[in-house]
Design a protein around this nucleic acid. Sequence first.
DNA 1: CATTTCACCTGGTGGC
DNA 2: TGCCACCAGGTGAAAT
Length: 275
Amino acid sequence: MPELPEVETIARGVDARVRGDRIAEAWFSSHKQPFKTAALTQARGLAGRTIVSVHRTGKHIVCELGEAGTNETTAQWIVHLGMTGRLLVTTPDGPVAAHTHARVSLASGREIRFVDARRFGRLEFRELKKMEGFSAAGSEPMTIGTAEFAELFRGRKLAIKAALLNQQLLSGVGNIYADEGLFQASIMPRRRAGKLTREELERLRLALRTVLTHAIQLGGSSVSDYVDADGVKGFFQLEHCVYQRTGLPCRRCGTRIKRILVAGRGTHYCPKCQG
DNA sequence: CATTTCACCTGGTGGC
DNA sequence: TGCCACCAGGTGAAAT
């Protein structure tokens, strides 16, 4: 599943290839599901605009769009990959994959494609006018400080794993990195968020930062069908300590990794290291 | 308000 | 070999 490291990898790849390019025209599929903004509105909004830059906020890829000749952002195209979404930069003559929902052709001859079998992804177009730009609801796990991090969980009764997945609190952490971060911090996923000690919270904050940074360096985790903007897989799945390692020996102590359900999500942990 | 559950989707898997 | 029930999980709406 695309989470912060995967989305960051894709955003960087797309930015490197299309920054400064001009959108010639855009085509969208006729499904209703992946479109937060009506397809026609998006097609009209994108056409003719310049791509100022592409970056990540939480799990969202934000394309800053402007007018020819200026660097000012006048609109944004926001892509959320959901579970199976892919954002690819290709040539227009390549075969069109099944479940392609958007094709954005550029003046350079390149084409941006959004492919999403499950259609859990979201495509949104925003005119900025006097409105402020898009910002994710939760805090950025890569840069959040000690006090602010602790404050997110104070008094909360839900499981820490569930709290980490809540994008209103932290944005960018999904099932993989919640499990990996909790393992790295030696915290049992079912612990009540509000009951964690100051030391445990700080361990968790640093563990998340470490795991996410390492994952970005390796181009993300390719489980299910994640690939970057060039269609290339990441390598962080090879470094996973617990995620999808049910029954395998813990890399730290050899105990078999267990899988339980927390907040309706498959959750992997080491009963000894995180006991 | 906080928290939990469910619907949205399709491809892959395992059982028969 | 083929069929089908079931599972995966990000998110937002509905329920508790």
